[in-house]
Design a protein around this nucleic acid. Structure first.
Lengths: 161, 161
DNA sequence: TATTGTTATACTCTATAACTATA
DNA sequence: TATAGTTATAGAGTATAACAATA
């Protein structure tokens, strides 16, 4: 079991098109994240906000750039998270105009729970593959993301020379 | 070029974790769809609505189930699409309570454009891989989706016996 | 003058609850 | 009574434009 699809004969060429396969896979993973987030009353964007704050204390402005949002949208997003006690605002010591955003303990705990459950979901999905397939998939996906990042002038694994 | 990542030496083990790789890839693909849809002033849910209607003429009720939305949300979604001239409502001949939803020519044309551009985006992404990797990826992703569908009691490639 | 952040406004998207019309 | 759909209401999320405070 778990090899059912590998047992397909040569004549059985049923396979998704490369594009459809990637699109469907991305939906499946996206839906997993959405579902887990919703269990904690989080939207995807709130989850991303908390995730970004795990290892950063950015200003509203920086946050907006990281999340791809306008400053006004970012302001509202932070406001709603703050009202729930998940993040805190503090004035920047360096610039009187700026506001630093950070996770509260409650926010950190919430995002840890959600992300470990999401990791478990994706792991369970990957466990449906043979070890060989799983390794090959990881290698190829990494190459794909490195190439895609390079297209946008980003080095995914910067030299640590 | 295009082989840069394949040229990594054996000692260079930099690779994303399987879970992170899949998560990041799914974001990349999702963002491509979002961006292309936005160019046509479509949200993802509006795009899905039009996509579903390409080969169906469902009632509001059926549409809601297909899209995973409440009937009131579906009603509003259709209302906004209708106001833009992308879909049309018609009374069901079979049931006086029901409303059938269908694509207009404008809606069909719009969704065709958006989807062919999205396909081109994903194809361009896949073109960053060697043919060997691309084939392997497609095979493995298909296996993954078949297994995942099976977990939910769905047969992705029903026997056509 | 330029930048940071908030606020006012407007729209999409979503759900719950109440309602109308039909079955 | 039950079902199909709409409408009223409420709230998240988003952007643009106008604003205040700081640089």
């Amino acid at each position: 079991m778990g090899r059912k699809s590998a047992d397909r004969t040569a004549e059985d060429t049923s396979e998704l098109s490369p594009v459809d396969g990637l699109a469907q896979l991305s939906f499946v993973v996206h839906r997993m994240l959405e579902r887990r987030a919703a269990e904690h009353d989080l939207s995807i964007i709130q989850t991303r906000l908390l995730g970004v704050l795990r290892d950063r204390h950015p200003t509203i402005n920086e946050l907006g750039k990281l999340l791809g949002l306008d400053k006004s949208s970012t302001s509202g997003l932070v406001e709603r998270a703050e009202r729930r006690g998940l993040v805190a605002r503090s004035p920047s010591p360096a610039d009187g105009r700026s506001v630093l955003v950070s996770l509260t303990d409650a926010g950190r705990s919430l995002v840890s729970d959600a992300s470990s459950q999401f990791t478990a979901d994706v792991s369970a999905l990957l466990d449906r593959l043979s070890q060989h397939d799983r390794r090959a998939l990881t290698t190829i996906v990494t190459r794909l993301l490195v190439a895609h990042a390079a297209d946008q002038g980003i080095e995914l694994f910067p030299e640590t020379r």
